[in-house]
Amino acid sequence: MSDIPLRSYRPVTTEAPLFRTALIVVVLGILAVLLFAPLITVFYEALRKGALEALTSLANPEALSAIKLTLLVAALAVPLNAVFGIAAAWFITKYDFRGKAFLITLIDLPFSVSPVVAGLCIVLTFGANTAFGGWLVGMGYPIVFALPGIVLASLFVTFPFVARELIPVMIEQGRAEEEAALTLGASGWRVFLTVTLPNIRWALLYGVLLANARAMGEFGAVAVVSGKIRGVTATMPITIEMMYNEYLSVAAFSLAGVLALLALVTLALKTALEIAHADALAANHRH
């Protein structure tokens, strides 16, 4: 009576094994062609004539000045972005006011504006042919076709990054801890540095990482506002374009390789954060 035939049943909440294997193969195949092949190509083309040739091309003055400029732009734009992100997250999560949803929409706006349109907007605001821009040029502080324009363009395209990471985390943490610290007599700054900051530091780092990667790699907006002056306003992505158009393939791909390495390091750190500090990040980054 108790002889139930032994037969393995497939759980009803998954697909047939053949279907699963086929789907995995197709999806990974598409990823290999679309995602991994381009990444490998960057390093393959850079090292085509040997590592020495690649390194020599990085040491040429044009490449070096591009690297310096890109580092400088990121060093200015990313901290400004972080300050904005912290201030905006504090303002939005610690107070109740009308128009909060509208403010968040405005902060997100740069995500839905084409980088080229962003560059165009900056040229129309601060360009030498505008009243304000012309006055600034007259005072000796040009913005467009100079460093401030590039920093402004980088800020525009990275604008929501830090704020977006901090807002959900700070909403989740609420205000009780800050209010308790205030009751115990701590000053506002002390509350921020000793109560809030330790709670949001990993989310802050996460946002800064993403903002940095974008700021160093931004092309469209910078292409419009920089004027692409060799050795002066040519950032790494702009220099890559110039070298590529001059058929300096190894030089272009070597510089591209440096940025690709930066992207890989960013991804690695981001993943490490997601694994190690999942509870301190916004919910959609937890694994």
Binding site: L39, V42, G217, P237, E241, A252, F253, T266
Partner: peptide
């Protein structure tokens, strides 16, 4: 999967 977010567009373009 996030590589396209991290890789600069000019790098992706020439690759």
């Amino acid at each position: 999967v996030d590589l396209p977010f991290a890789l600069p567009t000019a790098v992706a373009g020439i690759a």
